[in-house]
Design a protein around this nucleic acid. Structure first.
Ligand SMILES: NC(=O)c1ccc[n+]([C@@H]2O[C@H](COP(=O)([O-])OP(=O)(O)OC[C@H]3O[C@@H](n4cnc5c(N)ncnc54)[C@H](O)[C@@H]3O)[C@@H](O)[C@H]2O)c1
Ligand SMILES: NC(=O)c1ccc[n+]([C@@H]2O[C@H](COP(=O)([O-])OP(=O)(O)OC[C@H]3O[C@@H](n4cnc5c(N)ncnc54)[C@H](O)[C@@H]3O)[C@@H](O)[C@H]2O)c1
Lengths: 205, 205
DNA sequence: GCGCTTTTGTGAAATCTTAAACATAATATA
DNA sequence: TATATTATGTTTAAGATTTCACAAAAGCGC
């Protein structure tokens, strides 16, 4: 393991680079310069080079970066070379959209368990998933050794669900509920709230 | 209008403050200090005070901030005192979840138009919405004077949809498609891609 | 092979952001 | 009323991040 003490803001851009490179690879391109990539992403070329330099030397002077090679390196750095199992909690509208979403496969993730606490939903099939009782999060998620979860329950239930996931050993949580949750050291939480993004933009209107 | 040249990173935190204050107001609380609010959000008290100081003096020494008052001020600053109309493009799984989502009301937004390009969907009712032909984005969105849009179409279609929205006069776009789009100066774009968030966390696993 | 062009990787400089510190004011206490 | 406590708003310092600038390397044309 190289790369010690890389700023989180650098890490946060790597998935964007990876996404763009995968797209370019599918288009059949071989090579790209930091200038071109930066142009596509709205990021300065110097920033891209500096970010990558935290992890090694991946480019070739005068040419740029080999797209497939850099993509593979980023996958390795981000630890998404294999598909990781993800537990989803909340089989509502958003949960259903996430279950059907084809965009996880190939990018390192696979929803493999779905939980809800609604007795009418528990036991039902939703797509390829049987909805499990959220009471059993602690045992089942721990048994399977799952480290990643997506929370799509109402705000009121989010903290208790997160607590259960943490007890089950989950280390990374993507929370769609519009509330900040408390987790112990070492557990990572990311938030998605469309209203936050919209409000950030209305400021400028 | 006071508040000139506020850093965007400051603006990006205001919706978080607003969300927390609305939650606290609903719980019936009257007053909160920057220390308590910071604790709830995982943000330093000094940061909160500094951020707010860009826009005026909202607190009282020895006491803290009146929750309702500060919430109202933030709503004013973020320009979400009234509900703004939002156009949604893409009536797929995610689009349906967004249409049904109750979390826009009360936070400044209301989806009022839904577009798709699938002939089987156009004309159908989905909840309270009739799905409109995305060919008509330019005329209808412009006529209604809508400035905000949510894009929930496949990546391949995102740029063309965005282009149509921009021609219709839209100034703020929330893009769920996993691709960076090009927009002219003065048009704001925010992105939501759950995989980006997940990959950012797997780095630390 | 030899200039010419392109582009990387990287220190140094510039800019931006956060944190610390404190004077000031409001409140509570006695 | 005096004193202690609390918490803001702001200035100053520290820290983090981005940009700049350039030597070094690689490819290209001839
Ligand atoms: N629908 C959207 O487009 C959207 C967008 C952004 C954010 N969100 C947020 O995502 C979350 C889910 O949204 P939704 O629209 O799917 O809501 P929903 O009401 O359709 O679904 C919520 C699901 O969570 C389940 N649930 C409730 N408490 C639970 C518990 N303790 N354990 C397990 N399951 C529990 C419910 O039974 C229900 O099936 C909400 O917090 C919402 O604010 C939704
Ligand atoms: N479903 C999710 O949970 C999820 C999560 C994250 C991101 N996304 C992204 O959001 C987008 C939508 O996802 P989805 O799961 O709803 O996909 P979907 O295939 O279910 O829906 C896409 C919809 O867009 C419509 N469409 C296609 N081209 C169009 C055009 N040019 N104009 C108007 N409408 C058009 C299609 O007819 C379809 O109804 C995709 O880019 C996807 O990657 C989805």
């Amino acid at each position: 393991m190289p790369a010690k003490d890389v700023p989180d803001i650098v890490v946060s851009r790597l998935p964007l680079y990876l996404r763009a490179l995968s797209f370019l690879a599918e288009e059949g391109l071989q090579v790209i310069s930091s200038k071109e990539l930066g142009h596509k992403l709205g990021i300065s070329p110097a920033q891209i080079r500096k970010d990558l330099s935290h992890f090694g030397e991946f480019g070739k002077q005068g040419t740029g970066y080999n797209i497939q090679y850099l993509r593979d390196q980023l996958r390795r750095i981000l630890k998404v070379t294999e598909e990781r199992e993800v537990a989803l909690v909340g089989a509502g509208d958003l949960g259903r959209a996430l279950m059907h979403y084809g965009g996880f496969a190939g990018r390192g993730f696979r929803i493999s368990l779905v939980f809800d606490n609604n007795p009418q939903k528990i036991g039902q099939k939703m797509g390829p998933f049987e909805i499990l009782d959220s009471e059993s999060i602690e045992t089942i998620v721990a048994d399977r050794g799952i480290e990643i979860a997506i929370v799509a329950v109402p705000a009121e239930a989010a903290q208790e669900v997160v607590d259960a996931l943490v007890r089950a050993g989950v280390k990374a949580i993507l929370n769609y509920a519009p509330i900040t949750v408390k987790v112990p050291e070492g557990v990572h939480v990311q938030y998605i709230d469309p209203v936050i993004h919209l409000q950030r933009m209305t400021y400028y209107l």
